[in-house]
Nucleic acid binder design. Structure first.
Lengths: 254, 254
DNA sequence: CTGTTTAATTAACATTTTGTTAATTGTTAA
DNA sequence: TTAACAATTAACAAAATGTTAATTAAACAG
């Protein structure tokens, strides 16, 4: 161990921003939902007018972490700078540090995923850093030309999101504060393949007993909504219950 | 973005090594099991004879990642160098990059946990880097004086291990290749608090149906062991089944 | 006004899993 | 022989799930 260590050439924070878009498919019908990822196209020139590495390719939003801040704080900052979005769920899921992953040198990427509900993303904007910013479905995304190892990072992010969706109340961040069961079901089905979710009778019987959601009341009466059906549907909200599951206790899928 | 980025002063790989020790409590009895963590005492002088930062304090094994290797590879290397142990389950669980966490400068720690079964640790050794290397129970560990933010890292590691223990077949790495149900139960109980594990009748009824373990056979007959009981007990081994649980499908604890 | 349509539920019932307490089994050691 | 004891297995009520069918409530067409 020397006093003067060999140091990396850079430390970046990258963010895979996911959202679920709703496409209105008819009046009084649950909308068609689709998982999308937000990507930016790297501009030809950087802030100072120098040619940008990997220009023209698609990449995750992100950038260099500044001294005095953490990668998490950098993620918040970059997300605000590049997309104009604040106050979202940000979670670290991995570090990418293979030699050669970035031609500029030894650069370590601290990767995060972000869940945004559609409403939050409405405020997004273009900036000098991103010549283009766009939402892609995952089918579209596989066709793109990615900068660095961002394709791998995105694949991993997706895996972590699916896992967290099944094991935690992550779905909350894709939904509005108050939602109906078919909305929750729709969100879950974009990511998870499980008969206990896709079978209506099973889902509607089980969901109201889930300890981490609760029916919304107004003036002591159940609060209902007609936004997706003629029949008024009960509104629910997430509470703070943190569910715990175990492979030794519970019945397993597959 | 400049061509010459501001760079961190170092990138380290730290490893929280856990094992479960078995204390023989009598013949034909399941042993008393206890979770322990391996720590090293930072030596007074480094390789080159200079005074070491945070000397005399307890710390996780680890060290600087070299250019050309990943933090994961560094973890493997350091683990071999400092403890003489190879071939263990290593898993990344977090990054520690708060400004000021290391007085030597802006130093980023990529943290891993390692699960070792007791047999693997028998080969551990002292080296020039670690003036002392020792296993501590978690009760003992809370009393220690830790270098850097290693106390926080250990707390987090423990949380991740408990989670992975409940959600994956991680328990496998604490056990020998072939084990008896009471051994599995003992390992699980050192980390998890669940009546379906601690209640013998429930555990012994459920365990043989778990899809990720299977009874060991020899010459077409069930293979049994007397190592912890007079009654011969069936031996099991983990297979490659990856269990999946979901908070929306399964009954929840708490 | 009346029947039709559709999402949102609820019902019903057989099947599986649990929670729980009690009984068996196989082996050693007195 | 028998006591002891870990390792099972049995037994049965209570809960949860898989599945198919029925009900409900509003909107809309006629």
């Amino acid at each position: 161990m020397k006093n003067q260590f060999i140091t990396p050439d850079g430390y970046t924070s990258d963010i895979a921003v996911f959202t679920i878009t709703s496409e209105q498919v008819g009046e009084y019908k649950p909308p068609k939902k689709e998982l999308k990822i937000m990507l930016i196209k790297r501009s030809e020139l950087d802030h100072e007018g120098n040619p940008n590495r990997e220009a023209g390719k698609w990449a995750l939003p992100g950038g260099f972490v500044r001294p005095g801040e953490t990668a998490f704080q950098a993620a918040e900052r970059k997300l605000a700078e590049e997309t104009g979005v604040e106050g979202l769920k940000i979670k670290h899921f991995g570090v990418y540090d293979s030699p050669g992953r970035d031609l500029r040198g030894w650069i370590i990427s601290n990767a995060h995923y972000v869940i945004a509900n559609e409403a939050a993303l409405r405020s997004r904007k273009k900036t000098y850093d991103a010549s283009e910013i766009e939402l892609f479905s995952l089918e579209e995304a596989v066709e793109l030309d990615f900068a660095f190892d961002h394709r791998t990072i995105i694949d991993d992010a997706l895996w972590f999101i699916k896992k967290d969706m099944a094991l935690t109340t992550l779905a909350k961040h894709f939904l509005p504060e108050e939602f109906v069961l078919s909305e929750l079901q729709g969100v879950l089905l974009t990511m998870l393949d499980d008969p206990s979710i896709s079978t209506d009778a099973a889902f509607f019987r089980k969901a109201p007993t889930l300890p981490f959601i609760e029916a919304v009341c107004e003036d002591g009466k159940p609060k209902k909504s007609n936004r997706y059906s003629k029949t008024p549907a009960q509104l629910y909200r997430f509470n703070d219950f943190q569910p715990i599951v175990s492979v030794y206790r519970n019945k397993l899928q597959g």
